[in-house]
Amino acid sequence: MASAQVDRLGAMHTTGNTVFIPGATSGIGLALALRLQAEGNTVIVGGRRTELLERITAEHPGIHVVRIDTTDPDSIRTAAQQVLAEHPDLDVLVPMAGIMRIEDWTSPDGFLASAEETVNTNLLGPIRLIAAFIEHLRTRPDATIMTVSSGLAFAPLRVTPSYNATKAAIHMLSESLRLQLAGTGVRVVELEPPSVRTDLLPGQRDSQSAMPLQAFVDEVFDIIATRPDVTEIQVENVKFLRYGEARGDYDDVVATLNSLDPHGAAS
């Protein structure tokens, strides 16, 4: 992310920012948090599990933590008040929390609870987080909201319909907010991960068809450093899914995607 020529992350400087990443106690979120800290930013990690937050502060001195349950509106409001009281210079929000569940919509009782939980976490959570911070961010001279969608926002994995739908919604939300916030000091950047070796699904961390986590983070920061005005952060591995419809091979993309094991397609 550091560069002699470029010192911005979207509308955000690569150093000297104050960044809040709810849902960053593991996986992509934690890896991004650690890289941002290494680049000289103040980073606040949010999560539900106190033991994970305590481990992060013990293992990574300088990282700030706050307890937050992004499925609970009251918890979001409380955490937002704490973050802004302790870090009034906050200028970057990365709503990272997300879950992925395999669902069988052919079974009468096999999907509804999972679908509702997924929508609450993956869609309502980011909406409520943005609502909690948008007025503050608009007071900052340079601010960024980095949303997190997925390659599966653009091509569906058969076994995860609710996840696909929520990530497609995040993509369109990002597009819409970018239009509404044009001309303000708030930039909307969308991160679109491919399958990455994390614990999003059981066994995904060991999947050979998923992208190594550090390689993903390195490529993300390289894109940011070399393309400071990027609105969609796309590593090479996600472009097969992202541009199937534009290339005219969408049906082939969907068929190939669904011939893989779920761990190789998750993101």
Rank of each mutant, 00 (worst) to 15 (best):
S3Y: 04
R8K: 13
H13F: 05
T14M: 03
T25I: 01
A31L: 13
A33I: 07
Q37T: 00
E39T: 01
R48E: 04
T50W: 00
L53D: 04
A58T: 12
P61A: 09
D69E: 04
T70P: 04
T71E: 07
R77E: 11
R77P: 00
Q81R: 15
Q82L: 11
V83S: 13
L84V: 13
L84N: 13
A85G: 14
A85T: 15
P88T: 09
D89G: 09
V94H: 05
R101T: 14
D104P: 11
T106Q: 07
P108M: 05
V119M: 07
N120G: 05
N120W: 03
A132C: 07
F133N: 08
R140I: 03
R140L: 06
A143D: 08
V148M: 10
V148T: 13
S149D: 15
G151S: 11
G151F: 07
L152R: 12
P161K: 02
S162M: 02
N164A: 06
N164V: 03
T166P: 04
H171D: 12
H171A: 07
L173H: 01
L173R: 02
E175W: 04
R178G: 10
G185W: 04
G185N: 14
L191V: 01
L191M: 15
E192P: 00
D199R: 12
R205S: 10
R205K: 14
S209I: 01
F216A: 04
D218W: 01
D218E: 12
I223A: 03
A225N: 03
T226P: 03
V230F: 01
V238I: 08
F240Q: 14
F240S: 11
Y243Q: 06
E245W: 06
E245S: 12
G248S: 05
Y250T: 01
D252C: 00
T256E: 13
D261R: 12
S267C: 15
